[in-house]
Structure formats: structure tokens, C-alpha cells
Computed example of a mutant assay.
Amino acid sequence: MTKKYDFLIIGAGPAGMTAAIYASRAGLKTAMIESGAPGGKLLKTNEISNWPGITSEPGSQLAMDMFQHSTSFGAVYEYGKVVEIKADSLDPTSEKQVLCEDGTIFQAPAVLVATGTRERLMNIPGEAQNIGRGISYCAVCDGAFFRDQEVAVIGGGNASLEEAVYLTNFASKVSILMRREVFRADQIAIDAAKANPKIEIIQNVIPTEILDDGKHVNGLKIMDVKTKEEQTLSVSGIFPYIGADPVTGFLKSLDVLDQQGYMVVNSSMETKVPLLYGAGDVCQKGLRQVVTAVNDGAIAAQDAFHKLKA
């Protein structure tokens, strides 16, 4: 099956949904292709407090509002897992082909990739078999399963501290484990974590092994990076927030990625392949936030509109 559009957006997070608004309002026949629920990382964020005009709102609510807006001007939501993009880097007017896992082919002269990033694994013994059995990468999704239990959060950035505070709504104790002594987070997040009586911050340690009883996580081995001493924490839940990698495997044949796999784009969010754009966390950039993602999506859609209508 082949479906044709003017503008295809791969990914329905904040960047993709914003691009859908701008492109469809401008009159482009637009579709968003998404393999999961719309919203991206908003769905995994308990509280958004840095979106201008809204002091505080659940991430899921903002995602729902954005999705409703993104389709209000005619943009279509298509389900699909993209496995490859075929594009002629020398002919800017040629149709690009977006191939999906189920065999569906989408065609459009302009394509925006807004697939974001995927959480990085710890790569330690016991991790793979315990994902979903005590290991979770989404506190909002799974926090309630750990009511009155002890859990550990891995990482010292904004996500780890904010989600640790959220987990105190359920867990009896939350241990934040940091490799270093320096936080990589905003001061407001640091202050909130330090002030919470249910949170213990353990610095200069790394996780080395996840323990289980055959059905569920029941412990975590950690090692002091300075003394090499080991200890075991009795925890039922483990929430790693140690970074993420871009979801760009389907672009490897197009030479538009840097060494880390992020898309390289210009100020119009366009790659070296004409009318192939990147937006949001998937791009090579310094700040990955909702506000920067929507900025990217708007710029890309507007640039595509002008070039398609020229």
C-alpha cells in the first residue's frame, strides 16, 4: 500500500505535532507517522513547569492538548514503524519514500524526522531480564506499582531528580544514585530532592548488578567509584535516567547523522538532503526541552511550505 502526502512527519512528540499544525494550516497535505501514542516524552513526565503560560501541568495533559491541536487543521495521524527512508540527495523535487515495517509505503517530497531519543540501558547483569519486572524507565507509568516499597533512581540530572520526587508519592524510600558529586540539574530540582525526607542521595557510586527472586527485582548491587567497596540495596524498583540515544537507525544510509547518531541540520532544520528535515531531541543540539522541540518543528514546517510552493 502506498499513501501520498505533501509533508510527512515521522514522530508525534512536541516537535512533530507542532510541525503538523504549521504545515496543515499552510495548506499542505500532512501526516504524522507514529509507532506509539502521541506525546513523546511528555507521556513519561509527571509535571511540566517550564512551558510558558502554564505554571504546572501533567505531561500527559499537555500531550493530549497538543495532539488535538495538531490534527485540528487536517493533519492525519498514521500508525507505523519506519524502517527506512529513500531519498535522492541530488534532486530536491523527487518524491521521498518512507518504508514501514508492515510494508506500507508513504511518499512525499518533504519529510521531517522527529523521532526523539530512546533511554540508555545500564548494561549490567540482571538488567535485560528484569525490564518490566522492577526496572522501569518511566516513573509516571509505573510509580504506583511500588507503593510502600523502596526504590532506586539512577542519575543526577533533571529527569532523575524530578522523577525521584514524584516517586515519593508512592515509595517508602527513594535512593538517588550518582556517579559523581556534581548534579547535572537545575537548582530548583536539586533543592526539591534534598528537601524531601523520603529521598537519600548517594554519590560516587555506580550500579553493578541487579538482583531478583526469579520473578521480580529485590536488590541492587552498587560500587563506590573511589574506594571500590560494594554494598547491596534492598529495593523493589529501579528507575535509570542515565541519558538517551537518538532514534535514527532508519537514516543510516543517507549520511545525515553525526558520530553519535544525531541528525545534522542547518538553521532551517534541513539536512544536506533537500527537503529532509530534523526536529527536536533527534537533532544535534545543546538543549533538549519541549520549548526547543516545538521551535524546531515550526521552523521546519514553514521552510518546507515555502520551498514546496516556490
Rank of each mutant, 00 (worst) to 15 (best):
residue 2 T to S: 01
residue 2 T to N: 11
residue 6 D to Q: 11
residue 9 I to D: 01
residue 12 A to P: 13
residue 13 G to A: 03
residue 14 P to Q: 07
residue 20 A to F: 05
residue 21 I to P: 03
residue 24 S to N: 01
residue 28 L to D: 05
residue 28 L to F: 04
residue 31 A to T: 01
residue 34 E to N: 12
residue 44 K to F: 10
residue 47 E to W: 14
residue 48 I to C: 07
residue 52 P to A: 10
residue 56 S to K: 11
residue 59 G to M: 02
residue 60 S to T: 09
residue 63 A to F: 10
residue 70 S to N: 00
residue 71 T to K: 10
residue 71 T to D: 09
residue 79 Y to D: 06
residue 82 V to G: 03
residue 85 I to F: 12
residue 87 A to L: 05
residue 93 T to W: 10
residue 101 E to I: 10
residue 102 D to R: 09
residue 105 I to P: 00
residue 106 F to T: 01
residue 107 Q to M: 14
residue 109 P to Q: 03
residue 122 M to E: 08
residue 137 Y to C: 10
residue 142 D to H: 01
residue 149 Q to S: 14
residue 152 A to V: 06
residue 158 N to G: 13
residue 159 A to W: 08
residue 162 E to L: 00
residue 164 A to T: 01
residue 166 Y to M: 04
residue 168 T to H: 12
residue 169 N to Q: 06
residue 172 S to F: 11
residue 173 K to M: 07
residue 176 I to P: 00
residue 177 L to Q: 06
residue 180 R to M: 05
residue 182 V to S: 10
residue 183 F to Y: 12
residue 188 I to Q: 15
residue 188 I to F: 15
residue 188 I to V: 15
residue 189 A to K: 03
residue 195 A to F: 01
residue 207 P to R: 14
residue 207 P to Y: 07
residue 209 E to P: 05
residue 212 D to Y: 12
residue 214 G to T: 13
residue 217 V to T: 13
residue 218 N to G: 04
residue 222 I to K: 00
residue 224 D to S: 02
residue 226 K to N: 15
residue 228 K to C: 12
residue 231 Q to M: 12
residue 233 L to W: 04
residue 239 F to A: 07
residue 239 F to P: 05
residue 243 G to P: 05
residue 246 P to K: 03
residue 247 V to H: 07
residue 249 G to A: 09
residue 251 L to Q: 10
residue 251 L to E: 05
residue 265 V to A: 08
residue 265 V to Q: 08
residue 267 S to T: 13
residue 269 M to L: 06
residue 275 L to M: 07
residue 276 L to P: 00
residue 276 L to D: 00
residue 278 G to Q: 10
residue 280 G to K: 06
residue 293 A to K: 03
residue 294 V to F: 08
residue 299 I to S: 02
residue 300 A to R: 05
residue 301 A to T: 01
residue 303 D to L: 08
residue 310 A to Q: 06
